[in-house]
Write a protein that binds this DNA or RNA. Structure first.
Lengths: 301, 301
DNA sequence: GTCACATTTGAAAGATATTTTCACCGACGA
DNA sequence: TCGTCGGTGAAAATATCTTTCAAATGTGAC
């Protein structure tokens, strides 16, 4: 019997907790209970049969299987196998880590430590969860694009600008649109061979989806960078790059960790493009570096 | 009568190959074939069912189960689970090459790994090098400031905008200036009790130093976020927050890692301020969150 | 409020995988 | 040559996983 390709992703290697967080919003209540149990105690769950896990979480076998499917495995058996791997993994060598949330009365030194740790975690999760095939496809499209339009609002807007800035530096024609109306207006100009990139953590930001839809309809290659790969934005995306969703707290809104994740994805995209256009990118990079040097005050040391 | 009783040990941890060798002499020919296959390719075998492994080794299911028993497991299922763990284990074992620079011909997967690793490193360095006393002072000033002006150009401009966005969200009056001329013009308005923050990696960006100097002269509390604490910008800064300077390569310009570092500093600053103004910050945060929720397209699942 | 409709859920049937049983096979010694 | 015995796999028995389907629950329209 042939293996079946499933919904959204290949079996996750190590970043299972991250995946659970990413997918949690699209889960039903019962499935969330299962996912939570799995993420909370991988080793323990690996020792359980479907029935066992169903009883533990107060749900049914069917729900457990559904959850396994949603997480990207063909069935519970495979999830369990992955879980066993994960368990062995974390048992072998993990630092205790700074798991605590940032509290209102944390001294400033703790804030620095915890925040740095959280961001590191976010980076690791993102890297682990990033689909390199999709990324490669996006890179290929961007490297040869006639022009690249980038959509993002709010915090994601800054990420978009960052990407645009860098792409411009290596001689590509990239533009980050901040005004949704203008974005749509410009999207109409796109055609096959152009690339449109939408950045939205929630995956359902109308202001970003709309221009992407237009670009998609016009035949441009569309890329979505989102934390919700199952969100509406993916409908109009040829390639979906998933950012990781870190746990958030009151003091540390989701926007903060999603930004870290988005920036990593965007950087990878950029470097991939720079590699492919090395002939032109390298001189362009040093040229812009030179140009900047003269903007500094002459005496710097 | 039982067919066999569990030889000598509980589920083997990792030294499976060794166990196979030890027990090999006491095995029958068929069992040896199975054991050999298992020891030779744990990962591959973990993917097989009893029937599959039986076929692969040219034996029967019964023999496979007997072998599993001899190795100390209750049955094949458990051997398989252990095998999966082992596979994950040895796969993670090889994680070198990360230290290498990103090269032009690196496959995209390596780019992701290296980049994530580099950024994690940058975060760790930044956190370690950050002066919490200076940070605390900057936080205290910002939390009670009448208004906060932020200066940054180029890549640093985005960091500044990020900070301004967040401070605005918790009800503070913050503005990120992008135009150097306007920045200076506005800096003249500052006075004691106000805060000016300059962000520059090189520490010698004239366009950023100038407004900070003006703010400094007007009596505002000035903060510099820079990778060169000995640079000209520090001259006019009451508090200097140092960002780390990661090694850069041709494909990965300094701007990229300095951005990561700057963002961490800025986030710490923000959270510190949010802590100090928690009474007003908390409601403001949830309010802006609520407002945003309605901008999304209704159906997201 | 009430109805119609979609979604979520678990019980049980159905399919697979694992374990056990048992009869056959071939080797060895009398 | 015959009988005994460990080794072996086919097939039955069991456990486990997957699918189906109808009830329960939620949701939006009127």
């Amino acid at each position: 019997m042939k293996e079946s390709f499933n919904a959204d992703s290949p079996p996750a290697p190590a970043a299972l907790a991250a995946k659970v967080r990413t997918l949690a919003p699209s889960m039903t209540r019962s499935m969330q209970r299962v996912a939570e149990a799995v993420a909370g105690d991988p080793a323990g769950c690996a020792a359980l049969t479907v029935t066992g896990l169903a009883e533990l979480t107060g749900t049914s076998e069917a729900t457990v299987v559904r959850t396994a499917r949603l997480l990207g495995y063909p069935g519970y058996r495979d999830l369990r196998l992955a879980l066993a791997g994960l368990a062995a993994h974390q048992q072998s060598g993990r630092a205790p880590a700074v798991t605590a949330d940032i509290a209102v009365d944390d001294p400033i030194a703790d804030v620095v430590t915890k925040l740095a740790y959280d961001e590191q975690q976010t980076l690791a999760d993102t890297a682990a969860g990033l689909d390199t095939v999709q990324l490669g496809a996006a890179v290929a499209a961007a490297a040869t694009a006639r022009r690249i339009d980038i959509y993002g609002v709010g915090a994601s807007s800054l990420v978009g600008q960052d990407l645009a800035q860098k792409l411009l530096r290596i001689g590509l024609i990239a533009h980050a649109h901040m005004d949704p109306h203008l974005a749509v207006t410009n999207a109409v100009q796109l055609r096959s061979g152009d690339v449109a990139i939408a950045i939205t953590h929630s995956g359902s930001t109308g202001d970003v989806i709309e221009p992407l839809r237009v670009a998609f309809d016009r035949g441009a290659t569309t890329v979505a960078i989102t934390g919700r790969p199952d969100g509406p934005v993916s409908q109009y995306a040829d390639h979906v790059l998933t950012t990781s969703t870190a746990r958030e707290s009151e003091l540390r809104p989701a926007a903060m960790s999603s930004r870290t994740s988005q920036l990593l994805v965007v950087d990878c995209l950029f470097i991939g493009v720079a590699q492919r256009t090395y002939e032109t990118a390298a001189p362009a990079l040093s040229a812009s570096y030179e140009a900047l040097a003269h903007r500094h005050t002459p005496r710097s040391r």
